[in-house]
């Protein structure tokens, strides 16, 4: 078990780049449609909720509601774009299109493929997060530099949710099961983790639980960055928690995918 599991792992530090570049080439062919699709949903949320609810809510945690929400939307869009890229696009490459099968007949390992897919999905998160950030900065709800500061966390958030989604596709028999993950896990996280409402509004028992969820760590890093607040000591804790959320599912999904693809 040990030896053969080790043979699944990335063979070296750069094999995954070939997988990333394959996805980039495919993306480039439909870049415009992909960008619009990526942006439309979070920007609609930002304006709809931000202006609409913002009028009722007034100020939240010492800032305007729309500035509070912009940071939440950057984190949420990083989460959803990495999740969707992995659930739907990577699943298609694994399953119907047999792209992974072709790659597995070369010198790449399953770990190389999974790593390439995760970094690719994180790249799309950066694109989506940056786009919302740019809109927020253009409207004056965040400074341009603060958007740049938020990007490393956006990328890490992308890795986390791509990695979690990789576990889902390694287990799901078909597309039909993804909706459970979306509605039972991701959507509640948006409301629990302080993306659209402050966590302080939740009952205290919920707060403890919600504070452990990956999106909460991500929001707790992105919001201070975008609102240019002092970095707290808890930042290191949030970063390590996100790293664990990215790394553990990577190992789990690679083992599960072997069971699925390499018997």
């Amino acid at each position: 078990m040990g030896e053969s599991y080790a043979a699944l792992m990335p063979a070296n530090a750069y094999n995954w780049i070939a997988v990333w570049r394959r996805n980039f080439l495919a993306w480039r062919k439909a870049a415009l449609a992909s960008l619009l699709g990526n942006l439309a949903d979070p920007i609609t949320n930002l304006f709809g909720l931000g202006f609409g609810l913002g009028l009722i809510v007034g100020r939240v945690e010492g800032t305007s509601y729309i500035a509070f929400l912009a940071a939440g939307m950057v984190a949420t869009s990083a989460m959803t774009s990495a999740t969707f890229e992995t659930l739907y696009a990577a699943f298609a490459r694994m399953d119907a299109n047999r792209t992974w099968e072709a790659i597995l007949s070369t010198q790449l390992t399953l770990g190389d493929i999974v790593l390439g897919e995760l970094v690719w999905a994180a790249s799309k998160s950066v694109l989506a997060g940056a786009a919302i950030g740019i809109v927020a900065a253009a409207l004056g709800y965040a400074s341009w530099l603060s958007i740049l500061y938020a990007m490393p966390t956006v990328a890490l958030t992308g890795l986390v949710f791509a990695s979690l989604a990789m576990v889902v596709i390694s287990l799901a028999p078909s597309y039909d099961y993804f909706v459970f993950y979306q509605t039972l896990i991701l959507t509640p996280m948006v409301f629990l983790c302080g993306a659209v409402i402050p966590m302080s509004q939740l009952p205290s028992s919920f707060q403890h639980f919600a504070g452990l969820l990956p999106l909460a760590h991500s929001v707790d890093l992105i919001r201070p960055a975008m609102l240019e607040r002092a970095v707290s000591v808890s930042a290191a804790f949030h970063v390590s928690a996100l790293c664990m959320y990215a790394i553990l599912p990577f190992f789990a999904s690679t083992a599960l995918l072997r069971r699925r693809l390499l018997r």
């Binding site: 080439l25 495919a26 790659i103 010198q107």
Partner: peptide
Amino acid sequence: ELQFTVRENLLVFGRYF
């Protein structure tokens, strides 16, 4: 890769090696 050209298929595959 159905959406890639013939040459792109060879390019992408060569990179895997």
